[in-house]
Amino acid sequence: MRTVEAIAAIPMHHGLVLAAILFALGMIGILARRNLVFILMSIEIMLNAAGLAFVVAGARWEQADGQVMLIFILAVAAAEVSVGLALLLLLYRRFQTLDADAVSKMRG
């Protein structure tokens, strides 16, 4: 259980700054890494950061909506990661590499 004085001590924007930092780190990961596994992990970091921002806002207004949005984000992440990992396996089997830059030929 939380106590009243402990809560009042943390300003809202500290939580938001934490979310922003995590988000930016995830973005760096996506842009800098070439390995698809790392790119997927970075996407997870970014989604998680967005969820954190929602929960922080929900805590600020004492509403359940923030956590509801986190649950939706979890569902999106789960769907995204299952398809993403299946695609990654398929790519690895076909091209013998996880290099995102190696699979740049599009067929249309």
């Binding site: 943390i10 809202m12 924007h13 805590a59 600020r60 004492e62």
Partner: peptide, 10 residues
């Protein structure tokens, strides 16, 4: 601004 957050757990 530095609004503190609410007082009750959800």
């Amino acid at each position: 601004g530095d609004t503190p957050w609410g007082t009750a757990a959800v």
